[in-house]
């Protein structure tokens, strides 16, 4: 049952900090995984800025990146409260094996079709996750999710519009969009597998396995509407929540953390 005292539209990383809510350690561990998902995805989206296929898309992808980064900051700030660490301590001074993001989010952007495929899968996932999390018994998580779900609704719409246009546009875009789906498909399974940090947090955390039905209901239909085919590709073995990442993660973190690590303890 929700007992939220925080106005969901106003929540920001700063307001979470100011409110002074301290996350219980298991909740912090759970929030950290969610925060890493959002952070790594935001980092990937940030790479598109100044390279998108049209200026209007630079603006659109920029918006999505900023929303994701906002979710990451809120979740990391809340998680950090359990350990006296800031969002930046967590983002910049953990090593690869300490990051808990699912592998989908660290996939390289590839071409625009690969990115849209990833965004489609990510948005459907976040939409169902945050919808459920908005009812969390933890008021901070509920508030973060309540704001996020409105933004993710827009991200999902953006992905769907592009899925349609690329799938049905030209032969070339159709081929690339199909290939894009195939490229990220192996990483879908992990998203809906058990989250070790959600164990024992009934009513607070969301078990990702409960979200699978929504994916199965929505995504194949969207793919078919776009004249594309659901890939018949097996899911890869996961490991993200346990700190076991793909080879893309090392360079991603190296780039993200290089400057902060060159000046440990400095403020920016």
């Amino acid at each position: 049952m929700k007992t939220s005292h925080v106005k969901s539209t106003a929540i920001t990383p700063e307001s979470i900090d100011e409110a002074g809510a301290i996350a219980p350690s298991p909740v912090a561990d759970y929030a950290l995984g969610l925060g890493d998902d959002a952070l790594v995805l935001a980092q990937r989206l940030g790479e598109w800025i100044a390279h998108a296929p049209e200026l209007e898309e630079d603006v659109a992808l920029g918006n999505i990146a900023l929303d994701q980064l906002g979710h990451a900051r809120s979740l990391l700030t809340y998680a950090g409260s359990a350990w006296g660490k800031t969002e930046d301590d967590l983002a910049y001074f953990r090593g690869e094996s300490e990051f808990r993001n699912r592998l989908l989010f660290e996939r390289p952007n590839g071409d625009f079709a690969v990115t849209i495929a990833r965004q489609l899968v990510a948005s459907v996932y976040f939409d169902s996750l945050y919808t459920a999390l908005a009812d969390s018994a933890d008021p901070t998580l509920a508030a973060i999710a309540g704001k996020a779900v409105k933004e993710v609704d827009y991200h999902l719409d953006h992905s769907v519009q592009w899925l349609l246009r690329l799938g049905r546009g030209t032969e070339l875009s159709h081929e690339r969009m199909q290939r894009g789906l195939e490229t990220i498909w192996p990483f879908v399974g992990e998203l809906y597998s058990a989250d070790p940090y959600a164990e024992g947090l009934d009513g607070v955390a969301v078990d990702p396995r409960t979200l699978q039905a929504r994916f199965d209901d929505v995504v194949p239909r969207l793919i078919a509407d776009a004249s594309l085919t659901v890939p018949a590709i097996p899911f890869a073995r996961g490991g993200g929540r346990d700190g076991r990442h793909s080879e893309s993660m090392g360079p991603l973190l190296a780039e993200m953390q290089v400057l902060a690590r060159a000046h440990p303890g400095a403020r920016w």
Binding site: P13, L39, G46, D58, G62, R73, D88, M256, W268
Partner: peptide, 17 residues
């Protein structure tokens, strides 16, 4: 991609946008 804090990263993204 290399901004040294998440807040600075957000601000820079917004500026470029």
């Amino acid at each position: 991609t290399r901004a040294p804090s998440l807040k600075r990263k957000a601000i820079l993204m917004a500026k470029v946008q």
